[in-house]
């Protein structure tokens, strides 16, 4: 299928699903029709703004992310506890700023990695350039963990096309 059509269709379907979930009016044909029109108009505007690409509508990334989020949420909980301990005893902190390698190939993958770093309390991504991310960490161990590379690898896995897409030649990003 033409990638543009695929992106438009998946954006339309997810927008309409969002509209249905938010409105809760599932019986009135007039409202359902208006919802369809609103979703279609949004897709049209996105197309006019040239936002209908693999970055604006990251289909395969969305599905991969579903496997990544539970792990990320658990990391966030652990990091919250670590930072809470630092707040109760500020003598523990030893802030450090250093570059951490980011091996993701696409911009979107790097953004996912940088945002994951920032979302985890105790580490903030300050700058992103040339395959490296400048990270400020509340405890020096935060930098060492990131250099260990587990989050980096998992984010690289998120940006990979789905197995099915890969066999048919990929999306041609």
């Amino acid at each position: 299928m033409n990638p543009a059509v695929k992106h438009a269709l998946s954006l339309f379907v997810s927008l309409y699903a969002l509209w249905l979930l938010l409105s809760g009016h599932w019986a009135d044909p007039l409202l359902l029709g208006l919802g369809l029109a609103a979703a279609a108009l949004t897709v049209f505007i996105a197309w006019r703004m040239e936002g209908l690409d693999h970055e604006g509508v990251p289909v395969s990334v969305t599905l991969n992310a579903l496997a990544y989020w539970p792990w990320l949420l658990w990391q966030i909980v652990l990091a919250n506890l670590a930072v809470a301990r630092c707040i109760l005893d500020p003598r523990r902190i030893g802030p450090r700023m250093a570059w951490v390698p980011a091996s993701q190939k696409s911009d979107l993958g790097k953004v996912i990695f940088a945002n994951s770093i920032t979302l985890t309390p105790g580490t903030i991504s300050v700058q992103l350039a040339g395959g490296h991310i400048l990270v400020h960490a509340l405890e020096g161990a935060g930098i060492d963990d990131l250099r260990g590379g587990e989050m980096n690898r998992r984010c690289a896995r998120v940006e990979r096309p789905l197995a099915g897409d890969g066999r048919t030649g990929g999306e041609g990003t």
Binding site: I76, V77, N80, V83, A84, C86, I87, P90, I93, P95, M97, T118, L119, P121, G122, T123, I124, H136, L138
Partner: peptide
């Protein structure tokens, strides 16, 4: 509490992200 206790803007941001997440 962390925003009050920590020494500079960067460390305070770490404290603030506690309220954003958990």
């Amino acid at each position: 509490l962390g925003v009050v206790r920590f020494p500079d803007v960067f460390t305070r941001m770490h404290a603030a992200s506690l309220a954003d997440t958990l």
